[in-house]
Simulated scan of single mutants.
Amino acid sequence: MQYPQWFVEKPIKEYQSLLDLHTHYILPERDHKGRRVFLVKTGNIDLSRMKPTDMAILDEIVYEAVAYEPETLKNGTLTITDMSGYSYRNLSWLMPDNLNIAARKSNCNAVLEHHEHHIINSSMLVNTAFSLMSPFMNKTIKDHVFFHYDDYEVLHKHVNPEILPEEYRGTGPALDYDAVYERFIYNQEDIFQQLLQEGYVAEEKKQNV
Rank of each mutant, 00 (worst) to 15 (best):
S131T: 15
D150H: 10
M137L: 15
D151Q: 01
M124E: 06
D151M: 06
C108H: 07
E113T: 12
K139P: 06
L125A: 07
P135A: 15
D143E: 07
S123W: 05
Y152V: 09
H118G: 06
M133K: 01
L112W: 11
E116D: 12
I119F: 15
S123P: 01
E113D: 10
N121S: 10
H117L: 13
T128L: 12
S134R: 11
F147M: 04
H115C: 13
F147D: 02
T140G: 07
Y152R: 00
H115P: 03
P135T: 15
A129Y: 02
L112C: 14
P135G: 15
H148R: 01
H114L: 13
P135M: 05
S122L: 08
Y149H: 11
K142Y: 09
M133G: 13
L132T: 11
Y152K: 02
S134E: 14
L132Q: 01
H144G: 08
H148L: 07
C108R: 10
F130M: 08
A110N: 14
F130V: 13
C108K: 06
M124L: 13
D151E: 03
N127T: 13
E153Q: 07
P135H: 04
M124K: 06
V111T: 15
S123V: 09
M137W: 06
D143T: 08
K142G: 10
I141M: 04
P135C: 15
H114F: 11
Y152L: 12
V145A: 02
N138Y: 05
V126S: 01
S131F: 09
T128A: 09
Y149Q: 08
L125Q: 02
H115K: 03
F146Y: 10
N138M: 12
S134H: 14
I120S: 04
D150S: 15
N127V: 11
E153H: 08
K142E: 05
M133L: 10
H144R: 02
S123C: 08
T140Y: 07
V145R: 00
S134Y: 14
M137P: 04
F130G: 12
D151H: 03
N109D: 15
M124P: 00
S122P: 04
V126G: 04
N127C: 10
F146R: 01
A110R: 03
Y152I: 11
M133I: 09
V145H: 00
M124V: 12
Y149F: 14
H115G: 13
I141D: 03
H118F: 11
V145W: 02
L132W: 04
